[in-house]
Design a protein around this nucleic acid. Structure first.
Lengths: 226, 226
DNA sequence: CGGCACCTTGAGTATCCTCAAGAGAGGTGG
DNA sequence: CCACCTCTCTTGAGGATACTCAAGGTGCCG
């Protein structure tokens, strides 16, 4: 079996539905007029499934979300991780093309797509357009990362990207597991683990406790090859 | 150096500029109001370079185009191939994020982006939006393909995608070289060649003359693994 | 016919995957 | 507070796959 974790009953998949909770004091996103309810999701809880009607847009307040598709053989490709501030669920068609799950306890703002009328408001339309272009850019970046041949290169790209999105602090706090990273980078969990160890031995990073990585030589990380 | 304009070992790159030719009888694209000049490009001619001002949008009339980026070490990642009917060059920022070159003798329709005013015309805006979402989808598909681990899988995905875009005819006519395919799939040219030979030996395809592939067992191609 | 670009094939090696077992970390209950 | 369990991560050994280097074949064009 070639896959991530296990397959038959997809253990990462819990069919529990989202239960948006009316916020007493709804937060507003000026740019997108994303005014809606907030939802609190426990770890591994599903936000939406692949193929479900795409009538909601989400913004991460805290926590993190994985967007992924499951291939025919049960493998999982994580297309993107959504971090605080990110907006996701924007899909052209009637249904979501990818599934989404909370990586950890997560708070989202939920907005109905129909309320973001694309032609009702030119400003909102432009914001949506910019959002789509931004995600397009991210998709291209991922393709570039996956096109890189060695595990070290992919890992380096991933860490640098994550840092730039989470903000440069002393220590990078990974919201996802090794398996998630593996499924994102097209590697196995063992290779991810070994690569990190190797990078630590080379002095490129310092790892403390599996979820915490300190980047020490960004130059070398970005230049990793072979 | 991110602009791919002058990389030492980039033999595929010819710095010849595009010279749009006023068409006596401009073709019109109703959906996008893409009314502009046509350009005829010889093989390997550059359409635009990475980092150049992004003020034009293109539609392929005939021929084919590769959109790519050059990595720091000189490797090339081809993000997408643009085939007849495809529109490309739509970029959010001020400059193109990828470069584009003709794969073979190619005819394009060229339109200034400023003429496609995003807020001047709701219909055009929506068309642009849909276009962006479509490219987003393609980016995700590429990520899915590159995430697949074996060369056979990637090759199978690639061939099926290409066929679906070129139309199902008896024989698939590849507009790109083995090297282009390799740079698209994150493989080497030797692996591409070997994989195709192997697929032929397995009865999955029939190859005649390097640029012509007949898909014989689509089911098996899509299900390729290990 | 020769030159050139592209493609194929071979041999050897590096990288990554698979299978398997052990080590931490966190939570639960006695 | 500690034993125990589970989940996750790490590490090891062996094998499969893709890369590198190199040579030879094919087709096209002058």
């Amino acid at each position: 079996m070639r896959t991530s974790s296990n397959l038959d009953p997809a253990p990462w998949r819990r069919p529990t539905p989202v239960t948006p909770v009316k916020s007493p004091r709804p937060e507003a996103d000026a740019a997108l007029r994303l005014i809606g309810a907030t939802a609190h999701l426990a770890r591994d809880r599903e936000v939406f499934g692949e193929g479900e009607p795409a009538d909601q847009v989400f913004k991460v307040v805290s926590g993190a979300v994985r967007g992924f598709r499951v291939l025919a053989d049960g493998r999982r490709q994580i297309c993107d991780f959504y971090l605080p501030g990110d907006i996701f669920g924007l899909d052209l068609g009637e249904t979501y093309r990818i599934a989404a799950e909370a990586l950890c306890d997560t708070v989202l703002i939920v907005a109905r797509r129909s309320l973001l009328g694309e032609d009702r408001d030119p400003a909102a339309a432009r914001a949506l357009f910019n959002l789509a272009m931004e995600q397009l850019r991210r998709g291209q970046e991922l393709a570039l990362t996956l096109g890189r041949r060695s595990a070290r290169e992919r890992m380096g790209c991933f860490l640098l990207d994550l840092e730039s999105r989470l903000g440069e602090s002393a220590c990078l706090d990974l919201p996802m597991s090794r398996q998630d990273i593996a499924d994102h980078l097209g590697l196995t969990i063992e290779t991810v683990s070994r690569t990190l160890t190797q990078m630590q031995n080379a002095g490129l990073v310092r790892i403390s406790g599996a979820r915490s990585v300190e980047l020490r030589q960004r130059q070398a990380l970005s230049g990793l090859r072979a």
